[in-house]
């Protein structure tokens, strides 16, 4: 139908906010919406591990205990979900990608691109330049508490300057690649990079 009827008085959510901290087309929320592409995993921490991989082999793998003994980084940042909500001043703690590379004995990242692999068969691609140099971390704490399972706990990737689907929940492996490959949503019409300030929501934006 060419001209849908206007539903008198329907406003839906709040209108987009004009602010130098809110990217175009976003609106502010104060809660923390849950978006899941699958069932929330509840595996015990004794079975959890995290690895840096390349070419199908682990360069380094950490148990939960070992992972928590790595240097901790705190970050206060704004997050922006492609479904148009933004949340300001969120506080995170975890291990930076720089510290992970260092702990794995890698002077240089072994590839220019990465693919995050997660429980529930979720993947997402992020260039190394958007993770190294203090830009990304594997987060285990949110607002001072262990990260809740529905928000990606025990650990999620955090790349706050890209749309939040890049901050993959339930991360288990960060794989280094020589070329950029699309992840779970990127194969299905979402933008390969996802910069909220350029409003790169969908392929072709």
């Amino acid at each position: 139908m060419a001209q849908p009827p206007i539903s008198r008085g329907f406003r839906g959510r709040k209108p987009p906010v004009q602010s130098d901290r809110i990217p175009p087309g976003q609106h502010l929320v104060h809660d923390f919406p849950v978006l899941s592409a699958g069932p929330t995993p509840h595996a015990p921490l004794s079975e959890w591990s995290f690895s840096l991989d390349q070419g199908g082999k682990a360069l380094k793998e950490w148990s939960w205990e070992e992972f928590n003994a790595l240097p901790q980084t705190r970050l206060k940042t704004d997050i922006h979900c492609v479904t148009t909500w933004s949340k300001l001043d969120t506080q995170w703690r975890g291990v930076s990608i720089d510290d992970l590379l260092k702990a794995a004995g890698l002077a240089e990242p072994p590839g220019d691109f990465t693919m995050a692999h997660c429980d529930g068969d979720y993947t997402t691609n992020v260039p190394v330049d958007d993770l190294a140099g203090g830009k990304g971390m594997v987060a285990t704490h949110f607002e001072g508490e262990p990260l809740a399972p529905e928000h990606g706990g025990p650990a999620r990737l955090l790349v706050p300057h890209l749309y939040f689907w890049k901050s993959a929940k339930w991360i288990r492996t960060l794989e280094f690649l020589d070329s950029d490959e699309p992840g779970f949503w990127e194969q299905l019409g979402y933008h390969i990079y996802g910069d909220p300030w350029q409003e790169q929501r969908y392929a072709g934006d």
């Binding site: 849908p4 009827p5 206007i6 539903s7 329907f10 406003r11 839906g12 959510r13 209108p15």
Partner: peptide, 11 residues
């Protein structure tokens, strides 16, 4: 069902 607000917002 699909609602359209006066500003074009749809749900």
């Amino acid at each position: 069902i699909r609602l359209t607000g006066e500003d074009g917002y749809r749900a």
